[in-house]
Design a protein around this nucleic acid. Sequence first.
DNA 1: CCTTTCGTTGACAGCGCTGTCATGGCCGTG
DNA 2: CACGGCCATGACAGCGCTGTCAACGAAAGG
Lengths: 341, 341
Amino acid sequence: MHTVSRKTIHDVAKAAGVAIKTVSRVLNDEPNVRPETRARVLAAAEQLQYQPSLSARSLAGRRSYLIGLVYENPSANYLVDLQHGAMARCRKEKFRLFVHQCSGRGDDLIRDVMGLIDQTHVDGLIVSPPLSELAPLIAALDQRNLPFVRIAPNDLQHPSPYVDMDDEGAAREMTEYLISEGHRRIGFIIGHPNHIASSLRMRGYRAALDQHQIAFDAAYVRQGYFVFESGLEAARELLTLPNPPTAVFASNDDMAAGVLLAAHELAIPVPQRLSIAGFDDTYISRIVWPRLTTVHQPSYDLAFCATDLLLHSLKDGDSPRTARLPHKLIRRESTGPARLE
Amino acid sequence: MHTVSRKTIHDVAKAAGVAIKTVSRVLNDEPNVRPETRARVLAAAEQLQYQPSLSARSLAGRRSYLIGLVYENPSANYLVDLQHGAMARCRKEKFRLFVHQCSGRGDDLIRDVMGLIDQTHVDGLIVSPPLSELAPLIAALDQRNLPFVRIAPNDLQHPSPYVDMDDEGAAREMTEYLISEGHRRIGFIIGHPNHIASSLRMRGYRAALDQHQIAFDAAYVRQGYFVFESGLEAARELLTLPNPPTAVFASNDDMAAGVLLAAHELAIPVPQRLSIAGFDDTYISRIVWPRLTTVHQPSYDLAFCATDLLLHSLKDGDSPRTARLPHKLIRRESTGPARLE
DNA sequence: CCTTTCGTTGACAGCGCTGTCATGGCCGTG
DNA sequence: CACGGCCATGACAGCGCTGTCAACGAAAGG
């Protein structure tokens, strides 16, 4: 067994008959290289299967060609979508993505992220929810003067770029759809209190009720935490109410799956006697029976777009700073007309 | 806004009143440093919030404190478990995990992985299935002389370390459990042909039938691909057979969820008229209704353990080279006694 | 007492790149 | 024809560390 030694810029320079600086110029698309020289260098690099060392680059220059994606504790499907969206965008440049699960809370979390920055020299950061709402973290990043993009942030006034979707509008549409199906007693399960999306979706729900002169009834609203079990518990309460809702709108698919399970337990046929709607359009919404009506949240695109904004802001200061991505109501078998009573 | 400049080893050395080499010694746990000197350096490093630059480390030394996790296209839940298992183990040392989704097939894929190695200088690699079965990739890694650990590989003779579970035994246990419930016509859905786990699980299924003198009937076996839709399709065929199975054992949970959906479509009550078993014990096995009887596959532990083996083999050559992790049969509501006919 | 060994520390080179500046050939201009 | 300016290229320093080796004092041995 014998280690194939790494090719360096010197090998390429020698093969192309130029100085290493010229190789560097070619590989970094710098101007002032004769086209034929450029071609010669490119050919040599290709022939040697040369890959520049990210370590050396970040040490010598002011870029590391690395961007970080930090997250805390999102659901698996959402997380994987984010990762792949960001990776896909990175792959189109010569950047790589460093995925980092943050640990700790408060100051520890900030230290954790700062440690990531110091150690890896990332050029920028993609901050996913709920970290994107964590003011102390955002402030620390500002102070560090590191470019970053937030996904679904709460503070839209902050100067850093962000991408999001219209959570409130989407929730209003879903609620209106349920109303249009004849539902009047519509249960609602709120998401995790730390996520701005939770209150936005709640607001959309209320707005739709208001618009259709349906009185808001707190008895039909339960606090959840974006996880399956919280949806299950909330639904057990809602569905055993004296005058139970004919539809339940959960703030994400995981909780909606919990509602569905509760309905099955209580032998309530879905959607004949109970309509159930989710949010996010994750994998599980297509797997359960009946399949969930939900709102498609473009997680992959959100991350792709966030990475795009970040890469642009690394190149030139003046680039689009925000993007709002479209959502879509997905009707499936878990919702239907309210039964006449 | 003002950039807080990165602290370097020089800052720490100055603060502690020693040479940078001594700081390096302390931070790398090298011997021959007086305890009080060590304490002084540690205090200075802590006080300055010093974080060594991974770039400089990997450039200067022969370690990068980075290990790579490469994967191709596993299901989201499995992938996230792997990532978190590996990250958790890394966090206990001063290592970081570089997660990389491979792109391309054949030579392109190998070039992709080699590019990762050259660019990031990873000290070692965790190779997850089905890449862990890709002989050309393994050969390329061997030639590169880079330490790596395989998760659930096919070639147990190969000298590189690996971790796996007893797929065959687990499948046999599950099948025996179904037999013990009185089932005789037991359908089976095979996993993706590229995964060794598929044939092992199939082998376990057959072994259990043989042991109980139940004739193997190819009509009850369908090829699947580890994805939901393939389970759905296979189940539609199996359940409309003239003499349909009373139980179906799918090689993973996603496909079992597909079987469950097919049963719902055909109004076959589960488990009263059909028992359904999955494999992996992923999130979805707990959210469908009825919840799936399945085999717990320790994905998190597999990755944790793989990382552990890798880190050990980086330190000293002679370390345990393999580990087989325990599985567990999880009985839930999707299986029950066969109906007497 | 001097020599050898060992434990502790530091000086310095150099990892593979990029940033800065120098060099030299070529052009156009007065 | 002399000169300045521009383009293409190269020489060289140095990023923040680790590896190597030397230096020094203290302990151990003859």
